[in-house]
Design a protein around this nucleic acid. Structure first.
Lengths: 324, 324
DNA sequence: CTGTTAGCGCTTTCAA
DNA sequence: TTGAAAGCGCTAACAG
C-alpha cells in the first residue's frame, strides 16, 4: 500500500480511502490510485484490514455432522446461499456427531475470529461456547438446541410430523406398527417418538416396546431390525422409519422377504420415487433450514437483541415409490 | 496479550512463546503465563498471528459447481478430510459453472490470503489466476483442466471408462446405441464421447448422429431425449447415460414406455440398487478425487516444485438395479 | 532462556 | 478533502 501511495504520489490514507470507496475522495485522485494499483499489481490484504477495524471478518463457520450426508450438504447449500448474499465466506467443518471434536472445531473457528457460528450440536454439553458468546461471537443451533447454553435455534417440527404419520397409519386400520429409530439420546429421535406416542394415546392405544428399535443407524441395521420384527408371532403390518436411510432398510427387508406392509417415514430424497414399494414421507425443506439458520445468525451479527428464539420448520406429506 | 504479560509478570514475547509452545521456554514461566491466560480469558487472534509471520493462513479454498449435487459434496468431504489432517480450514464456494462468478470468488479467496485453491474450472478462461499464482497461491484443478493457465489437475479416466462401457454393449450384440450426453463444451462430456467413438471404430462401426443427445442436463431432459429416440423407426436397443441423473431419466422413460433396453452409464449412487431396471455403471471414487486434489495442493503449498502434473482416477464397473 | 525493538498491512483518530 | 501519527494483535530479529 505504501508502494501504491508513492507511485500515485498520494498518502497512504488516500490509497486506503480509494480502495474502500470513500465517497468524499476526489475522483481524480482515486483514478490515479487505481492506475498505480494496476501497474503494481497490488492486492489488498483482507485479513490485515479487519485487524484494526471494528468491522467483522466477513466469515462464518458451519459445523455439521458429516459432509457426505445429503441432509447436511443441503443445509450447507442453504447456508452458503445466504452467506453469499451477505458477502460472507463460509468455513465448513465436520464434527462427526462427537462433542469433543465439535468443541475443538468451534473454538478453532472462534480463534479465527468468525463473526458467527452455525452448529448442529452433538449429544453432550455446549457450555464451552458461553465465553465465546460473551466475547461477541453469535451462535445459532440447527436441528436441535444446544445443551448448557441459551442461543437461537432453528428446528424441524418433528413432533407434529410424527403425529401426522402415526395418525395416518392408525386411521388406515393398522394396529401393529414397528418403529425404526436411532438412539434416544438424540432429541430429534425422542421428538419423533413422542409424536407417535401421542397419536397412539389419542387412539386409545399404547406402543409395544418390542416394536421399537433404537438401532436403525444405517440401512443395514434397519433391515436387520425390520426382519427381526417380521419374525415375531404377531408381526407389524406397518413400519415407521426415522429417516431416509431407515426407509431404504425397511423396504429392502420387505422386498427380500416378499412381505407386504405399510411404510411411512421421515425425509424425502431424490431417488425415493424408485422405491419398489409405495411409501408416504413427511418431508422437510432442509435447504430452507440452512437459509433460516443463516438469516437468524446474520440478524444477530447485525446487532439484533432479545431473548433466544426457536423457529420450527413445517413439513409436507408426499407419496413416493411403488415404481414398477 | 499485553494484559496477560502484565498479569504473569513477564514480557509480551514470553507470552507469545508460551502460546506457540516454544520448547526452549522455562516450564515454570509457561505455567505462569497459562494461569494468567485462564484468569483473563484470553483468546489468541489467529488472524493477527499470520500478519507478520511468514507462515501460512492455514486456510484453503474450494470452488465447486453446486453444493446440492452429491458429486460435489462428496469431493468436498474428501477435501475436508485432508485439510483437517493438515490443521487447515476449508472455505467452500459455489460458482454454478459460471466462469465470471468463479473468477470473482477465486479472487476474493486470494484477498483472504488462502494458501491454495482447489477449483472445478467452468467453461471459459482461467488465465485470471496467473497473477495470483505468480504471487504464490497454489492452484489445483479438479475434474477438468483450467484454460489459459498451467496448473496441476486431478481428473477421472473418462475416455477409458466410456470405451469399456461401449465395448461391453457392442460385444453383447447391440448395434443401435443411444447416447444421452450434455453440451460438448464440457471437456468431460467430450472425453466420454471420444471413448465411445473409439470403441465403435474398433468394432468397425460409426455412431449415428440421431442417437446422440447433447441436452440431457437433468433427469427430465434425459427422459425426453430417450423417448424421442424410442420413437425412431430404428430405435436404440441400448442406452449410455452421461451421469447418474441421465440414468434416472433413461430408466424413467423405459419404465413409462414399457420398453426393454440395455442401460449403462457413468457414476454410481446410493439408491442405484433400487432402479427398476438392471444397469451397468462405471463408478469413480469421487471422495478420493477430493482427497487426491487436496493432497496435491498441500504438496505444492509445502514447496514441491516441478512441472504441473495430471493425475487420472481409475473406474470400476458395477452392476445395479433390477430390484423387484 | 528472556526481553526489547521494529514492523506485518491496514484503519482509526485528529489535525490541517 | 487530505495527511500524519498512532495502534490493531501478533511475530521476527537481535540483543542481553
Amino acid at each position: 500500500m505504501n508502494d501504491v501511495a508513492r507511485e500515485a504520489g498520494v498518502s497512504l490514507k488516500t490509497v486506503s480511502r480509494a480502495v474502500n470507496g470513500v465517497p468524499t475522495l476526489d475522483p481524480a485522485l482515486a483514478e490515479r490510485v487505481f492506475a498505480a494499483i494496476r501497474t503494481l499489481g497490488y492486492r489488498r490484504n483482507e485479513l490485515a484490514a479487519t485487524l484494526r477495524s471494528t468491522a467483522s471478518t466477513a466469515t462464518i463457520g458451519l459445523i455439521i455432522g458429516d459432509m457426505r450426508n445429503s441432509f447436511y450438504s443441503s443445509v450447507a447449500a442453504g447456508t452458503y446461499e445466504i452467506a453469499r448474499e451477505h458477502g460472507t465466506h463460509l468455513i465448513t467443518a465436520s464434527a462427526e456427531e462427537q462433542v469433543e471434536l465439535e468443541q475443538e472445531l468451534a473454538l478453532a473457528l472462534c480463534q479465527r475470529r468468525v463473526d458467527g457460528l452455525l452448529i448442529f450440536p452433538a449429544v453432550g454439553d455446549q457450555s464451552y461456547l458461553q465465553p465465546e458468546m460473551d466475547l461477541g461471537t453469535s451462535v445459532v443451533f440447527l436441528d436441535r438446541p444446544g445443551t448448557g447454553v441459551s442461543a437461537d435455534s432453528v428446528r424441524l417440527d418433528n413432533v407434529a410430523a410424527a403425529h401426522t404419520l402415526a395418525s395416518m397409519v392408525l386411521e388406515e386400520g393398522h394396529r401393529r406398527v414397528g418403529l425404526l429409530l436411532d438412539t434416544l439420546e438424540v432429541l430429534t429421535i425422542r421428538e419423533r417418538l413422542d409424536g407417535v406416542r401421542a397419536a397412539f394415546e389419542e387412539a386409545g392405544m399404547t406402543l409395544d416396546d418390542r416394536l421399537i428399535s433404537t438401532t436403525a443407524h444405517d440401512p443395514e441395521a434397519a433391515t436387520k431390525a425390520t426382519v427381526a420384527m417380521l419374525d415375531l408371532d404377531d408381526p407389524p403390518t406397518a413400519f415407521i422409519g426415522k429417516n431416509n436411510r431407515a426407509i431404504i432398510g425397511i423396504v429392502d427387508a420387505l422386498v427380500t422377504r416378499g412381505a407386504r406392509a405399510r411404510v411411512v417415514g421421515f425425509d424425502d430424497f431424490e431417488m425415493s420415487r424408485f422405491l419398489p414399494r409405495p411409501v408416504t414421507l413427511a418431508s422437510f425443506d432442509v435447504v430452507e433450514l440452512g437459509r433460516r439458520g443463516a438469516t437468524r445468525l446474520f440478524d444477530r451479527i447485525a446487532g439484533s437483541a432479545g431473548e433466544p428464539t426457536t423457529e420450527r420448520l413445517p413439513f409436507t406429506i408426499v407419496q413416493r415409490g411403488s415404481y414398477r
